[in-house]
Design a binder for these strands. Structure first.
Length: 412
DNA sequence: TTTGCCGGGCC
DNA sequence: GGCCCGGCAAA
């Protein structure tokens, strides 16, 4: 059985290969944050590898105990151990890769109905990216280009692209990335993986990542003489698509229904946004973009995330708002009173024409009318200076009355 | 319509 | 901060 070994190698190669791209996917404007996040992910990837090794060792120890109880001859035992190692490793890896953590994507209600996904791969459409979403209109959340608000500053949030339902990655993994949870492994399948260029009006599909990167470099980025050099920018402009429809069905079947609590707006969004450990995790995973699928966990490599950071591949319009309980609170992109505009763009990379300047700002305003709080004090019942002295004796009024302020002489 | 006084402008 | 006034809303 070569599956475990292959997968491990696959993981490692993915990690080493994709980590450099992290900086483009983090929704932060600070280079230090980028480095920090990248380092964290490296550490997580290593921890995960350790964890897997530990799990295998534990199982191995357990197996040895059992084997010793049944008194297996030493010579035969060593041979068996070799096989058992593989089997055990396979079991561990399989259980990890098929664990609920991985297989229960917190999808939005209409995700599974998204036509483009059914076709085996998500292809972002700039024309359909209204960017507007609402708590009351969950269908809009299925929009692939829906950006998500960086609800809390401490949790660097990126715009999210709905993951391919069949690739096994989802917001759960995003949560893993963000909240130090074990990183699930990529499920292997036999599907044909293609790479599609997301550049506007291109859509070129190639069979290898290197090919598509080279295509982007030479055709779109104009780096003719740098065929072997890749700074990762090309990753932004292509996406992985899968041609095997079986996996699509599998992905759809693995979609877990969205709980009402997720579908409904939070009682007070700002609070939820501030708490990363509670509903924030749910909300964010729903709202934000996975930081990167080209991360160590980028076992489910999806470059569509890149499309969010800038044009030309896909525009990132954005407007999101929700109005919980009919209150006046709202969050919206590119529209007051709250504006989130964020385009995760690597500062070190030139953006093709049309790419907006990276700007990240968010403001939350909630200012009910002052009248609602009854700030205007009730009118005094007693006589005031004006009534007592009359207009002709205005000089006898108290200062407040003269200034048309609340009477200080005849206080109620 | 009268009266109390808030909000804001001017100095 | 002192002074003044437009304008709102209750009486």
């Amino acid at each position: 059985m070569t599956f475990p070994a292959f997968q491990q190698e696959d993981v490692k190669s993915d990690i080493s290969q994709k980590l450099p791209d992290q900086q483009f996917l983090l929704f932060t404007t600070k280079e230090e944050d980028l480095k920090t996040a990248e380092t964290k992910k490296l550490n997580r990837a290593h921890e995960y590898e350790k964890e897997n090794t530990r799990s295998v060792c534990l199982l191995e120890q357990k197996r040895k105990v059992v084997s010793s109880n049944i008194d297996v001859p030493p010579a035969r035992k060593s041979l068996e151990e070799l096989d058992m190692d593989k089997v055990t490793a396979a079991m561990v890896l399989t259980s990890l890769s098929t664990s609920p953590l991985v297989r229960s994507p917190p999808v939005r209600p209409n995700e599974s109905l998204n036509g483009s996904w059914k076709e085996g791969g998500f292809v972002p459409s700039s024309t359909s990216s209204s960017g507007y979403w609402s708590w009351n209109a969950p269908s809009d959340q299925s929009n692939p280009s829906t950006p998500s608000p960086p609800l809390s500053a401490d949790s660097f949030k990126a715009f999210r692209t709905p993951s391919q339902p069949d690739d096994g990655i989802d917001e759960g993994e995003t949560s893993n990335l963000l909240f130090d949870e074990p990183i699930p492994r990529k499920r292997k399948n036999s599907m044909k993986v293609m790479f599609k260029c997301l550049w506007k009006n291109c859509g070129k599909v190639l069979s290898t990542a290197a090919g598509i990167q080279k295509h982007i470099r030479t055709i779109h980025l104009g780096r003719v003489g740098e065929s072997d050099y890749s700074d990762g920018e090309e990753d932004f402009y292509y996406t992985e698509i899968r041609l095997n429809t079986d996996s699509v069905a599998d992905g759809l079947s693995s979609l877990s229904p969205v709980s009402p609590s997720l579908a409904s707006p939070p009682s007070f969004p700002t609070q939820d946004a501030i708490r990363p450990e509670t509903s924030c995790a749910k909300t964010e995973t729903k709202l934000m973009t996975p930081l990167s699928r080209s991360a160590p966990t980028n076992l489910y490599l999806v470059h569509t995330d890149h499309a969010y950071q800038a044009t030309p591949p896909v525009n990132i319009p954005g407007s999101a708002k929700f109005t919980p309980n009919g209150s006046s609170f709202s969050i919206s992109w590119q529209s007051p009173p709250v504006t989130f505009t964020g385009i995760p763009v690597s500062p070190t990379h030139n953006r093709p024409a049309g790419s907006g300047e990276q700007k990240q700002s968010h403001t939350v305003l909630s200012s009910p009318p002052r009248v609602a709080f009854g700030l205007r004090k009730p009118r005094g019942e007693g006589k005031k200076c004006r009534k007592v002295y009359g207009m002709e004796n205005r000089d006898m009024w108290c200062t407040a009355c003269r200034w048309k302020k609340a009477c200080q002489r005849f206080i109620d």
